[in-house]
Amino acid sequence: MIKMIDVCKSFAKGKIKAVQHADFEVKRGEVICVIGPSGSGKSTLIRCINGLEIPDSGEVYIDGQPLHFDKLKDQIPLIMRMGFVFQHFNLFPHMTVLDNLTLGPIQAQKKDPKTAVELAKALLKRVGLEDKMESYPAQLSGGQKQRVAIARALAQEPEVLLFDEPTSALDPEMIGEVLDVMLELAKSGMTLVIVTHEMGFAREVATRVVFMDQGQILEVGTPGEVFDHPRSERLRDFLSRVIHI
């Protein structure tokens, strides 16, 4: 489904090596959780998958089709096969929730507005917000905003959803409602790639867990392998700091 080959990305003229030689594959139906300390390049890695960051080198394939970063303008159909959920939601503040969901389908997919609205309503129901259709983002709580953002990403009918720390900007009491929606998506068989600090969630839903540190993918394995039998010193060290039992 997604294949990354030797992807490198640095910032500040090469001084900050955010991602180094990342090789990685996501198969259809997998739920991948990417974990690692802050600044380890998790977000940069997931942003390279759909062109939000342009890698310095390396290749990304979506279902065998290469993503040409030098002409992203012509890659819209490919990019739209991947939905993206941001840490800070990035909802359109001047539009109602319903319009947030239908903008992409109507403008980019040229869907008939009636069909788009019906799909949007169904998706809002799925995330439990059908009564917030006419609200503006500013009137919603953080958890509600993120659920709308997930519904917006689903509205483009993607084959895979990418999450960039979807619960990191939320108040603790709202994390659960967002994780519940993601859990339901995982159970439905959707392919998910999730950058997260929620270790309990990763252990529960991930088919594979990816551990990144200092821009490198250090370990990939089942939750059991990664959490219970870490091979590298850095992963053991990381887990000892984030898991408090």
């Binding site: 990019i79 990035n90 909802l91 359109f92 403008q107 997919q109 483009q156």
Partner: peptide, 19 residues
Amino acid sequence: GQWEASHTIGLTYFQTMRH
């Protein structure tokens, strides 16, 4: 982030500007 969100939902430069 508004540009980024527009990119992910498939809007072109002009659609992003306009909407």
